[in-house]
Structure formats: structure tokens, C-alpha cells
């Protein structure tokens, strides 16, 4: 059975259709990439799945349950973790406190009045940071970390909710090439070892063709094709609407490297 079922999602902004009849599914442990030109509706689709945006039509099912109109916080409780295009962390807190906050919330302690918050679930938080390679800077304020490290902390926060489904909106945006590859490899490894389904958008063709099990191509709000990386790469429509010669070359290298 699939983990995430998206059926017929449609959203218009004042007459402009941003997403039309978007349908796809994600299985546990599967990495699905959503690609397409700017303004194709990737972020819109993403926010509808995540609950930040209400669709005009269509439904989102998580492990069979209809979650279309649940807000993000309810989706979190049902096992949806999320990272954002611009990393969203609590800048006034340390890396560890960021993860602890997510753990407190997961354990239903977010409104507890008994301090100190700083010591709750600290061991678990340190372990989560260790997993993403951030153990050394656990006690540094997030505001002081390099952007690549903030992205790792954000991944640790998302994982602290023990998600079944991980949504990553442009996980490597704003990162250096080597950091990009490392972050994608890390996310993919964790997802596979924990059997987490991953849906991600990305402009970096290396990341997409190097890691995705399946790729959906969105153009002007509609899914024009979907399939395995080699199928999508070979599709002339994708090449014309999105990849171009240079993109196709990068995609080719990434798939070859993988094999």
C-alpha cells in the first residue's frame, strides 16, 4: 500500500491555475522528486500536501486516511516531517534546543509549565544531531551556524517527529555543490534505513537524478510525465520544457554515477 496518495489536487490563485489535477503517490522508503520550471506549481503542490495551503479540489491521503484539510500541526502528529526552501529553524535557540522543541511537542509537552525546558529530551536530541553530523555544534545558537549546517539541523528537527513521510522543498537550495551532494546522500540514506517516504522538489539535476526513485515533471501546473530517472531523462517533452541540453547532460552524469 502506498504511504501518500495525492489525487486530483487543483489550486488557482485569482484565475491563474497553479496546479491542475495533480495525482501521484509515494511508497514507504521511496524517494520521489517533483521537478519543473519556475512557476510550474511545485511549491504550490508541496504546500497543499504539507497543509500550508488548502486545495480547491482533490484529496491527500496519508496511509489511507484523508488528511486534505488538516493543518500542518495535525499532519505532524500523523507522521509528516517537513523542511523548507529557506530553512526554518528557531534562530534564538541552540541546535540541540531546536530538536528538543520538536521532541517536547511530539511528547505533548509544549505547554508544560515545569522547567527547565533546556534539559528535556537532551540525550535524544544529541543523538538526532549526531545522525546528521551536527553533534559538535549542538550547543551553538542556530543563528551562528553556517547555512549548510542550519539545513542539517532542520533535517534533524524534521526527523525528531519520527515521520513516515518527509517533505523537502528544495533541500539543497543555497548550498555549495559538495554540501548539496552530502545532504542529499544523508537524507536518502536515513530515509531508506528508516523506511521513510520522501517527496522533494529540486533544481539541482545532480540531486534529482542521483537520488530519486521516481520523478514527476510538472509544467504549467500539470504533471506532463512521471517515471524512473532514465525514462524521464529520455523524454523529449521534458528535454524541451525543462532540461535543455545542459540539464540533460548533468542528468546523464548523475544517473551514470549512480549506476
Amino acid at each position: 500500500m502506498s504511504l501518500l496518495d495525492v489525487h486530483g489536487l487543483t489550486k488557482a490563485f485569482g484565475g491563474v491555475v497553479a496546479a491542475r489535477d495533480v495525482t501521484f503517490s509515494v511508497a514507504p522508503g521511496e524517494l520521489v522528486a517533483l521537478i519543473g520550471p519556475n512557476g510550474a506549481g511545485k511549491t504550490t503542490t508541496f504546500n497543499m500536501v504539507g497543509g500550508q495551503l488548502a486545495p480547491d479540489k482533490g484529496e491527500v491521503r496519508l496511509a489511507g486516511e484523508d488528511v486534505t484539510h488538516l493543518p500542518p500541526r495535525e499532519k505532524f502528529r500523523r507522521g509528516v516531517g517537513r523542511t523548507f526552501q529557506i530553512a526554518q529553524t528557531f534562530l534564538s535557540m541552540t541546535a540541540a534546543e531546536n530538536v528538543q522543541m520538536a521532541l517536547m511537542s511530539r511528547h505533548g509537552e509544549a505547554r508544560a509549565l515545569r522547567p527547565p525546558a533546556g534539559r528535556r529530551h537532551r540525550e535524544e536530541a544529541l543523538a538526532a544531531l549526531e545522525r546528521v553530523g551536527m553533534a559538535g555544534t549542538a550547543d551553538q545558537p542556530c543563528a551562528m551556524l553556517a547555512y549548510g549546517d542550519v539545513k542539517r539541523v532542520e533535517l534533524a528537527i524534521a526527523l525528531a517527529g519520527e515521520p513516515k513521510l518527509l517533505l523537502m522543498d528544495e533541500p539543497t537550495a543555497g548550498m555549495a555543490p559538495r554540501e548539496r551532494a552530502a545532504l542529499m546522500t544523508l537524507a536518502a540514506t536515513i530515509a531508506r534505513e528508516r523506511n521513510i517516504g520522501v517527496l522533494f522538489t529540486e533544481h539541482d539535476m545532480g540531486a534529482v537524478f542521483g537520488h530519486a526513485d521516481r520523478i514527476l515533471v510538472l509544467v504549467r501546473g500539470e504533471v506532463i510525465t512521471s517515471g524512473r530517472p532514465d525514462e524521464v531523462r529520455a523524454d523529449p517533452r521534458v528535454r524541451e520544457a525543462y532540461l535543455g541540453e545542459t540539464g540533460a547532460a548533468v542528468a546523464m552524469r548523475a544517473t551514470q554515477k549512480r549506476a
Binding site: N38, A173, H203, M205, Y242, L243, G244, E245, G247, A248
Partner: peptide, 9 residues
């Protein structure tokens, strides 16, 4: 930055 490969061309 952030542009589809065809637009980069």
C-alpha cells in the same frame, strides 16, 4: 540561480 536549464540557456 534557481532557473530551469532551458532558461539558463
Amino acid at each position: 540561480e534557481g532557473l530551469a536549464p532551458v532558461i539558463v540557456e
